[in-house]
Each structure stands twice: as C-alpha cells, then as structure tokens.
Design a binder for these strands. Structure first.
Lengths: 332, 332
DNA sequence: AGCGTTACTGTGCACGTTCACAGAAGCTTC
DNA sequence: GAAGCTTCTGTGAACGTGCACAGTAACGCT
C-alpha cells in the first residue's frame, strides 16, 4: 500500500539509489543497461519522485508563485489573466514546475505572501497587476527568489523585469486613426493613474495631440464598465462637442457606449469610440468596438521566459516590449 | 545568511525542538512561559516552517490541485473560473493550504495530472469543467486524495461530490417567464451536451414546454459567441416565426443578438432573448440581457467546504444544489 | 608496465521536521 | 509518604531524496 520510493526502484532494477537518482536528474553517467532496467522498474512500480524529500535537500521547491495584487472586488474583470495563467501553467509544466496562486489584495494577504516567498516556498515569483507603490514589491525586495511581472511595475521598472505591450504605441495608433479620420475634438477616458495602462495610454494619447489634449477632454475611470459610463457622461457635460473618444479599455468603452446612447449620440457618426484590449466584450457591444489588440499570448510567454532565464541563473534580463495592433470595427 | 530552522528558534528560546514543534502545531501542552519565549524567538529570527521537511514526515503536502479540463482554446471564456479561483485561494489560505493550478486539456496533460496527484503531491483535488466521459475521473479514481467538483461531473454524480447551481430551475424560470409573457414559439440554444449546463438547462426548458419543445426549435452551441450566432441563424432558417429564444449562456446570447440584428429582428419586440450566467457581457450587449444569475460565490464556497470536510476525514458528503435567480433587463 | 582519463556505480550523510516515547515536576488522593 | 494523575519537556528515529566522495573497471597513451 505504501508508495514506492527510490529504494524500491533501485532494488527492482538491481542497482543502487545513486544510479536511479542520476537517471532521474539527467546525469550522463548511466549505462544503457542500467537505464533500461531502471526505466522498467519505474513503470512497474509506478514510482513518482517525492518532491518534498527532493526539496529538502536541493533547497528548491519546484514551484512558482503567481501573485495577484488586484483588490478583491475587481479581480479577474480583466480577461488578460486567463491567458497568462494558461500560458504559465503550460510553460512551467514543461520544466516540471508547478504554479501556485496567491492573492495580495490586503495587508493580511501581503504578509502571507511575503512569509511564503521569503520562507523559501517558491523558486520564483510572477507578479500581476501590481500597482504603483505596492508595499509588496519592497517587502519581496532582493535576497529572495527572482521575480518578474507581466506588465511593468510602476516605479520599479529597473528592479522587476517585465514583458508588456507597448501601451504608448497602442494609444498613438488609436489617436492617430481618429486624427486621420478628421476628428477634431478627441477626448479620452483613462484607467487608474497608478497602473501602467492608466499612465502610458494617456501619455501616448497626449504625444499625438500635444496641447490639444486638455484636461477638459480627459476623464478617469477604474477599468469597470460603470466607471466608463460615468466618465463618458461627465465628458459630455464638460465638452458636448466631442466627436471622438479613446477609452483605455473595452469594458469601460462598453460603458461609454451606453452613456452615448443615453445621450442620443450616434456611434460612430456623431462620436467615434475606440477601446483597448480587444477582449470578448469588444465583439458583443453594438456597434462592435474598434480597439487595440495586445499580443497577450506573447506577453505571457515572454514573461515566463524571463522568469525561467532568471531561474537558470541569469544575472540580468532586459524588459520586453511588444507591439500592439489597431483592429478596425464599426465604432470608429 | 541561512534560513533559520526550528533548531535555531529552540536555541533562541531556550527550549527544545519538540516544544517549538508542539506550539507550531497547536498542541495544548506548552507552558505559558515557553510560549512567549518561543513566540519572541520566532519573530526575532524570522523563522518560517519548512514545508518540505514537514511534508516528508506528515505525508501531506499542504496543497490542493485545481484541475481545469477545458480544452485549451476556450479556456477561461467562462467568467465563473475567476470567482472560483478567488474564493478557493481565500478559503484554502485560511487553513494554510495553497492552490496549485493544473491543466488537463489533452492526453499528455492528463497523464501529468494523474502522476502528480497519485504521486501524493496534493492533499485534495478540485475539478472544474470536467466533461462527461473524461478519462481523468477514472484515472484519479479511488485510493487517491479526495476530489470534489464545482459543477456536477456527468456520469459520476455519486462518486465526485459537487456544489452547483440548480441548472434545471434556472432554465424553468426563464422558460416560464417567456410563457407568462405570451410567447408562443420558444426556441433554445443549448451548450455542449456533455456538460451539466448543456444537458440540464435543456431539461428544464423541456420540462416547461413539454411536447412543444421540438427538435426543430433546439440548436446546439459550444459556449462561444460565434457558435451562438451560428445557432441563431440556423434557428431562424428552420423556424422563422420564433418569438423567443432561451440561450444557455450570455456569451452565446450576445452572438444570437448579432444574428437577430443581422436578420432585421427587433429585440425584444419581435424576438425575446434570455441568457444564462449574468456575466459581464450581459450588461454590455444592446439591449442588456435578461438572464439567469447563478450564485457563483456560494457555489465556490460550498465546493471548497465539501473538500475541506473530506480533508478533515469525512467519509461522505452530500452534493449541494443552489437556487438560481431570474434577472430581468431589456432583452425579454 | 605505468599512468591518466573516461565511464560508471555504491555509500554515508545531510536536509528540517513530526511523532512516539520516556521522564520530570507538581498536585491530589488515599 | 506512596501512588496516581496532569502538565510539561527533551530525545532519538524516521520520512525520501541529492550530492560529494570513494572506488572500480576498461581503455588509450607514453
């Protein structure tokens, strides 16, 4: 009834523990004869290596912690996570690493995460949606296992390697498209200004419009649909002559569409609307959203690649910035 | 530089390993004096228990595996996962259990999962979106750690405990609402017929309509928006006089709305549309969807509760079925 | 023949914890 | 004052693995 150990395998194969261990860990010094004998013994006994025992001696755990810093309520409104989780599981599994999920929404959570990570329970850390000034970053600090982030960590760009979409480029693409269409009064609804998406999408917008990007034409949201609706209503009050609006996320854009409809504006005839993300909502709105596609899968892949490089002992890795793409549908 | 061990704590507190271990594991026989000394020593040294060493002797890992059986492409289109993951992390963390994510999309994945679980690397298994006939269920079988599922596992309802929404009730609620409104030709777009949501929502629909639920009025989708659009187009061809359609998911309903719009039908005037899930798309469509809300958070909570009960040694737990709720918006 | 190199194998120890056990000290009870 | 609780403490063994090391055999080279 007991689970077979490396001893049992060794006995069944007629070799010693050491030889079995060498085979398991890819050491080259194993004779062909021993190799086949051990492989047979393994499949006969149904042996699976005991990770706890291995961890104890190697001082590595074979797992990576994914830390979600989003405040609890809005966690996962963002569809990006799903891609990241999927890709992460896949790529880590290839290296026999497992992905353990952690929440860092409040102080208690953060303390738990720090204890966990500094206690040596993870070989690496994968930060997600970490806001500017998040104390977690300092707390993890140096001395612990390597950490990377999917999306830049504001204020720590040089400390925490990351892969991200070129947010500024995406914002420029949309804004330039509006300009090329002859739109004159172009407004923007941003994300929270303590996130890279909030800050950099606004920067790209401002780069194109220059002094035309007045604060009167800029409203802030918090990524939720409701906040998009609110911000749009506000903008229409402030500047009724708006003829285009760049919204920093599709979900907020869906809210903006509702506000425009309520105000009797036709989209795109009266007001052009541009979103960001190319998420599934972009297709379910009416009209479907013209938006900016981020290369989510590649972002995830590159993020994991950075982490793996660090786990392999790389001293330093450079951030990866990936291009975005304008997807034209009917809202603009 | 080395991480402090239980020895270091014991030395700093002037007691023995055993006493520290007893305190850590909640044994009652620890004197007040020893208690404070140890607690001080722990915080001074920054000691964190080494889970690997603990696992080695206790034969438990302190982790639960969440196994996602969705085929890769459509993974996470379903927003239910996010709630489940969040709740699972939370509740497990309270018991110092961590959540490790695994994919079981293809044969290779499944083998990995089975090795992992049967190899004793998880104390429990949390199945998600497991389809009928999934070989994984057999492979995990008995003898391994306890397993539960969020949502019934078709064909294994008596083997794998689960918490789920009352799918039939939800379907009845929507169908009865259509009937009460005087709709005469009521169609349905189902989910895949190897999932509980696919099967049972159709059953509830049929329970209300009886023989009026002819196969001419029933089309099948695969949960995706595109499949909803396809199915709706198909239904309109088969039965152009449809005046209501119950779609088994909001995302597919968004597709159905597009098909209806393309066919020039007004919603809800010509055709009433009902969705299922009350996900975020239900609000971003035009018109907003009348739909069925599932108590996602409670489903997740109850699922974890079942698992914890089994981990605590319960021999048997009963499935939990939670009521759904009709949410009336503008599409019906 | 002697020596170095390559290919392979077995053994003892350490990793950090829990658990069973033995035992000490203080109290109550006969 | 002996015996029996209760409360608390320390100690040795065991969990299953990887790694350093020692050792063997075969081979090529001088």
């Amino acid at each position: 009834m007991k689970r077979p150990t490396i001893h049992d395998v060794a006995a069944a194969a007629g070799v010693s523990r050491g030889t079995v261990s060498r085979l398991l860990n890819g050491d080259k010094y194993v004779s062909p004869a021993a190799r086949v004998a051990i492989e047979r013994a393994i499949s006969e006994t149904g042996y699976v290596v005991n990770r706890a025992a291995r961890s104890l001696v190697t001082q590595r755990t074979g797992s990576v912690a994914m830390v979600l810093s989003e405040p609890h309520e809005k966690l996962f409104e963002d569809p990006n996570y799903s891609t990241l989780i999927r890709v992460a599981i896949r790529m880590l599994a290839e290296r026999d690493l497992s992905l353990v999920m952690m929440l860092a929404g409040d102080e208690g959570d953060r303390e738990r995460v720090v204890r966990y990570v500094r206690g040596g329970h993870a070989d690496g850390v994968l930060l997600v949606s970490t806001h500017a000034g998040d104390p977690l970053v300092e707390a993890l600090g140096s001395g612990g296992p390597p950490a990377v982030s999917c999306g830049a960590v504001i204020g720590h760009e040089n400390v925490i390697p990351y892969a991200a979409a070129d947010e500024r480029l995406g914002a420029r693409q949309m804004t330039e498209y509006f300009v090329a269409q002859g739109r004159k009064r172009i407004a923007m609804i941003t994300g929270p200004m303590d996130t890279p998406g909030g800050i950099q999408r606004l920067e790209g917008f401002a780069e194109v419009l220059g002094r035309k990007a007045t604060s009167k034409l800029i409203a802030h949201g918090d990524w939720t649909q409701a906040s998009g609706e609110r911000a749009m209503t506000e903008l229409l009050e402030r500047a009724p002559d708006i003829d285009a609006v760049f919204v920093a996320s599709d979900l907020m854009a869906a809210g903006a569409l509702a506000a425009l409809r309520a105000a009797g504006r036709r989209v795109p005839d009266d007001v052009a609307v541009g979103g960001f993300d190319d998420s599934s909502v972009a297709l379910s709105t009416h009209p479907p959203l013209t938006t900016i596609r981020q290369p989510l899968a590649e972002m995830a892949q590159e993020t994991i690649r950075l982490l793996l490089a660090l786990l392999d002992g790389a001293k330093h890795v450079d951030p990866v910035i990936l291009p975005t793409e304008l997807v034209i549908r009917e809202s603009a």
